[in-house]
């Protein structure tokens, strides 16, 4: 009996440590390489940097216009994520607590939306946006981001809100609240755990999105970080140092973002265990 437990423990640790190493090694290597000049990366890919060569970062930042891209990425991720989560929550509430026949159909539509690749809508979308004068504007990027975020988030919201006891809604109705009030004062507060998860997921997805922003914009002033990073990482780029620096600039903020908010999720999970 004791043996199986230690064996189980050993295997558990092995599994955990393997995953940890698989994550840490490439990331460490990426960050260290960003501080090495191109020639050193090519000749000694594994060696640590001899000195902290920060020219990679300054060059990547200025040449790749990463400053403005960074601001745009932040705007897109924040604004689009806020509305995705808000609309997903309101839809999720409507679809799970109103019990209309059309709910099934709408849910099905959203489920189908999960299966659509960006490429299959990109051309009609571009035509539509140019006709509306939306291409090359921030709004023209944010709207599709919201739309593409919705299917998954509506799904998450619907399943979560379904689990909220109907009694809560009913007692509020008796107290004279209308449905919008119920949504804002009961559903949203109760659903904070899932909201933080939804927020983090959507935010990450938007931060890393490339194809839509590339196609729907052309001005430097409205493009975002992935476009900048791609211009370093694209096939013929000749400077690995710059490339790694650009990758670090694009990746590290998200890692920090996650490390900050991860406790929020954990707290959310703990608080979210509904009292029944």
């Amino acid at each position: 009996m004791k043996k199986t437990i230690t064996l189980g423990k050993g295997l558990s640790y092995l599994l955990m440590i393997t995953f940890t190493l698989l994550t840490i090694i490439p990331l460490t290597w990426m960050i260290l390489s960003a501080f090495k000049p191109h020639a050193l990366i090519v000749r000694h890919p594994l060696s640590p940097p001899m000195s902290w060569y920060i020219e990679n970062f300054t060059l990547a930042w200025t040449q790749g216009h990463l400053g403005i891209y960074f601001i745009n990425s932040t705007i897109y991720s924040l604004v689009a994520t806020f509305f995705t989560v808000l609309f997903a929550m309101s839809s999720g509430y409507a679809l799970s607590k109103f019990h209309y026949k059309s709910s099934r159909f709408v849910s099905l539509l959203y489920t189908l939306g999960l299966l659509i690749t960006v490429h299959s809508v990109i051309v009609p979308l571009f035509i539509m946006e140019t006709k509306l004068g939306l291409s090359n504007t921030r709004l023209g990027v944010i709207l599709p981001y919201i739309a593409f975020g919705l299917p998954f988030q509506v799904f998450l919201a619907t399943t979560y809100i379904k689990g909220i006891p109907d009694a809560m809604q009913e007692s509020a109705i008796i107290d004279g609240a209308d449905f919008i009030q119920i949504f804002l004062r009961i559903i949203i507060p109760v659903a904070t755990p899932i909201i933080s998860t939804m927020f983090i997921y959507t935010f990450l997805g938007n931060w890393n999105e490339f194809i839509l922003v590339l196609t729907l914009t052309s001005d430097l002033t409205v493009r975002s970080l992935p476009v900048g990073i791609n211009s370093f990482a694209g096939g013929m780029s000749r400077d690995y140092g710059l490339q790694f620096a650009a990758l670090v600039i694009g990746t590290v903020p998200m890692i920090i973002f996650y490390l900050i908010f991860k406790d929020k999720i954990a707290q959310g999970f703990a608080a979210g265990a509904l009292k029944e």
Partner: peptide, 22 residues
């Protein structure tokens, strides 16, 4: 009415940006 109000913003965007092009 609340039902439609809650559903409309998301569905409108979703329909115009995904369903219609598809």
């Amino acid at each position: 009415m609340s039902y439609y109000l809650l559903l409309a913003p998301g569905l409108l965007l979703f329909a115009s940006i995904i369903i219609f092009p598809v």
